[in-house]
């Protein structure tokens, strides 16, 4: 298991070895923010660029 902390909420993210590749986008299980896998060994994550959905209430 590879793990790293979510840059947004510091939640622990665990990924089974070999189940992910660099550049892949995953969701943080705690805060749901989209993260980009910037390296595999060691596992590093960055906030994926994504546009903020406008609710327009």
């Amino acid at each position: 298991m590879a793990n790293a902390n979510c840059p947004e909420c510091e939640g622990v993210i665990e990924l089974a070895d070999g189940s992910f590749v660099a550049g892949e986008i995953i969701d943080c299980p705690d805060c749901g923010v989209e993260l980009e896998i910037t390296s595999v060994q060691p596992l590093t994550l960055e906030l994926a660029p994504e546009e903020e959905e406008d609710w327009g209430e």
Binding site: C9, D30, C31
Partner: peptide, 21 residues
């Protein structure tokens, strides 16, 4: 996040909800 996870991380009936989407 640290304070809320620290208080509720192990609680069976508390869910932390703060999401982007």
């Amino acid at each position: 996040w640290k304070a809320y996870r620290g208080a509720y991380g192990e609680e069976p009936f508390i869910r932390l909800v703060r999401e982007q989407k």
